[in-house]
């Protein structure tokens, strides 16, 4: 079994003084493995990625990168240690060219020869990056922008990549391209922690699936088996997880937002 590159252990985290979003989350990601977090809105999927990449500090629990506790380190430091985070939505530098965007991904690389070699590598991995090299990134389609983001994230040859809803806003064709690229990352030995609303599609390509509910892993296992698990459908279609009491579920909600 390959080495565990990223591990979140009993992580409790939240925003400000509000109740925690993550309530004892434990997830591990191994080299060359895609772990997919799925779950309803508010389950804590994106929050888990933010804790892993240092954008949010855990209140308790441990974040281990290649076995070392990195809780509290800045995103910049974590990037230097081989962890890249591709944020939700489009996060290219819109007024810059594709070339400038990709080069910014390798901003901390001083050696020009190394930088050029990595540029060639990501161009090979993402043909659209090579094709649109001189184009202004903001003028590319959503799928193309996402690939530029992937290429930028891989410029430092990270061991772990966190992807937050990479297919958001993309049509089925571009979604397929994005999932193909994730597959290529896996093939290159990168550990991928993926958050997706497109749950069934993501679980079909992932190795391990984790269904999050109320800030902890509710069900986990081989992704393809999970995709076929009827509990997944029930959870998304408004069913209740088995560990909530029937009384909780039956109790009428007060008017107003659910959270």
């Amino acid at each position: 079994m390959s080495e565990v590159l990223l591990a979140l252990e009993n992580v409790v985290a939240g925003y400000g003084r509000a109740a925690p979003v993550l309530r004892g989350l434990t997830v591990t990601v191994r080299a060359g493995e895609v772990v997919c977090l799925v779950g309803p809105n508010g389950a804590g999927k994106s929050t888990a990625l933010k804790v892993a990449s240092g954008l949010l500090t855990a209140r308790s629990g441990r974040v281990l990168l290649s076995g070392k506790d990195v809780a509290g380190l800045s995103p910049q430091r974590l990037l230097g240690r081989g962890l890249a985070h591709v944020l939700q939505g489009h996060s290219v530098f819109r007024e810059m060219t594709v070339a400038e965007n990709v080069r910014l991904g390798g901003y901390t690389v001083r050696d020009q020869a190394v930088l050029n070699a990595r540029i060639e590598a990501v161009k090979e991995l993402f043909p659209v990056v090579a094709e649109r090299w001189g184009s202004v990134a903001g003028l590319l389609s959503g799928g193309q922008q996402k690939q530029v983001e992937f290429a930028r994230a891989l410029m430092l040859e990270p061991a772990v990549v966190l992807l937050d809803e990479p297919s958001m806003g993309l049509d089925p064709r571009n979604t397929q391209i994005v999932f193909d690229q994730i597959d290529l990352m896996r093939g290159a030995g990168v550990a991928v922690l993926l958050v997706e609303q497109n749950a069934r599609r993501a679980l079909e390509m992932a190795d391990v699936g984790c269904v999050l509910d109320l800030g902890r892993v509710h069900i986990s296992g081989p992704a393809r088996e999970l995709a076929a698990d009827p509990r997944l459908g029930r959870l998304y279609l408004g069913g209740v997880p088995s560990d909530r009491t029937a009384g909780d579920a039956a109790r009428p909600r007060p008017p107003g937002p659910a959270f």
């Binding site: 995103p75 910049q76 990037l79 910014l104």
Partner: peptide, 22 residues
């Protein structure tokens, strides 16, 4: 220059630039 690329990244999104090591 590399310095100029970093400055332009700041103009577009300072937090993102910081997260990339600028």
């Amino acid at each position: 220059s590399r310095f100029g690329a970093g400055l332009r990244a700041i103009r577009e999104d300072e937090d993102k630039a910081e997260s990339l090591g600028v």
